[in-house]
Design a protein around this nucleic acid. Structure first.
Lengths: 236, 236
DNA sequence: GGTCACTGGTAATCACGATTTTCACAAAAT
DNA sequence: ATTTTGTGAAAATCGTGATTACCAGTGACC
């Protein structure tokens, strides 16, 4: 069964083909678009026969899922590694690091955010589930760092779950915008904005306005004017 | 040519069919998913023949684009209307209003955020362009309000463009999460988080940390590990 | 009441792309 | 040197769903 061919073990050849298919998939999905990419095109670009394709993947979506996972895993690995190095640093430095490494990793290649935040959206329930899992992981990560900051007294002690989710969304939005722009936006600005937003979101006081809490949920759409807002002291 | 049927003018009948097709599209796209919805299914649910379908729309995507536009337009109309009512209010109240109305409008029906932020993503270049246009509009809106706040002295005077984009992303993320959750997250919490994040992002000082500016773009990814790197080389 | 215009529904048609199968070959093994 | 086995390329199959063409019915107008 297993027989060395052309000097390389069959597993190796297999792995190579798989790798080439993934590379081809990344390229085509992010240029032609996932929907409009045909399996045969992926095979052609990868120099792999359709038969071999089905040896490695069950479908086009399978390739997409794999890529999506890989990109997220790569980013997470980088972030984790870097965070370990600054284990003793103060909380805010850690948060900045987390962010910088994330942005740096994912902007190395515009195809990564494109695949992650555009092509892999709304494709199938499975992919949506996978997305959820990753949002969760990233949100946990951020929430954990925020709590750490709270312990150190530089942020209020509160539940950071939703804030973290919103921050993940903010990053997604920025990166989606970044990869879509033709004269690409400067990466530094994206990173700076993301960092500033995260820090201000985490360090913000529990009540931003004193009216906070009276409004909130309800704010009916019809309800007319509500100017006035008497007696509010402005936060600094 | 034009003849009244069943007591209604042909244009009316036409408009009705169109409307039913849109309703059916909204329902199916957000349950079955856009990709897996067949034109015939939309027609069946709308009680419209395929022939009539092609009389109104050129493709399934056409329906999606129309819905995407409608939802955004609806939200924008509500927001604009409400904002007009509080024209004289202080800047922060206006911002809160903007947000509350937006959230209230779009959470009336979970299918709206689902369609807008999941199903309509990565479908085609046209739809991506349309998405860009709307992000732009919303971002301008937010940036304008932020500038207003700056004029009133409750926020620093600076360029709010990227902040606004990030905020749009935050909202998108929150709403995407909201519509995905089975025991749905309480709308008030989503709204509260969004508002708090927006206010803290707008009111934040220009430099959050003193180290700000030394870090930023660079944050090297540590030349060491880059195993997975799913992006080999550029296309020909 | 009869004819005509327009309608909705159904039944072909048609194209495209995924999946399978075949084929001829190349490199190992004996 | 011959057989064997894994291989890649190409061709055949197969299904699905978009698009078009047809048919029978209904209400409107004379």
């Amino acid at each position: 069964m297993a027989r060395t061919y052309g000097g390389v073990a069959p597993e190796q050849r297999r792995a190579d083909r798989r790798q080439r298919l993934l590379v081809a998939g990344l390229e085509l999905f992010t240029s032609t678009g996932f929907r409009h990419t045909k399996i045969t095109e992926v095979c052609a670009r990868a120099g792999v026969s359709t038969r071999n394709f089905y040896e490695e993947f069950t479908s086009k979506e399978d390739v997409l899922r794999t890529l999506h996972d890989q990109i997220n895993s790569l980013a997470l690995a980088h972030v984790t590694a870097e965070l370990d190095k600054v284990a003793d640093a103060d909380a805010l430095t850690r948060i900045s690091t987390l962010l910088d490494v994330f942005i740096a990793t994912v902007t190395v290649d515009p195809r990564m955010p494109r695949l992650n935040y555009v092509e892999a959206v709304g494709v199938s329930p499975e992919l949506e589930a996978q997305h959820q899992v990753w949002v969760d992981r990233w949100a946990n990560f951020i929430a954990a760092e925020a709590s750490r900051a709270a312990e150190h007294g530089v942020a209020p002690v509160r539940d950071y779950r939703l804030t973290a989710i919103a921050l993940v969304g903010a990053g997604t939005g920025l990166l989606r915008e970044w990869q879509a722009h033709d004269p690409p936006l400067p990466v530094e600005e994206i990173g700076a904005e993301f960092r500033a937003m995260m820090l201000s979101a985490i360090m913000r006081p529990e009540k931003i306005l004193d009216i906070e809490g009276n409004r909130g949920a309800s704010a009916r759409v019809e309800e007319s004017s509500r100017e006035g807002d008497p007696g509010g002291h402005r936060p600094t």
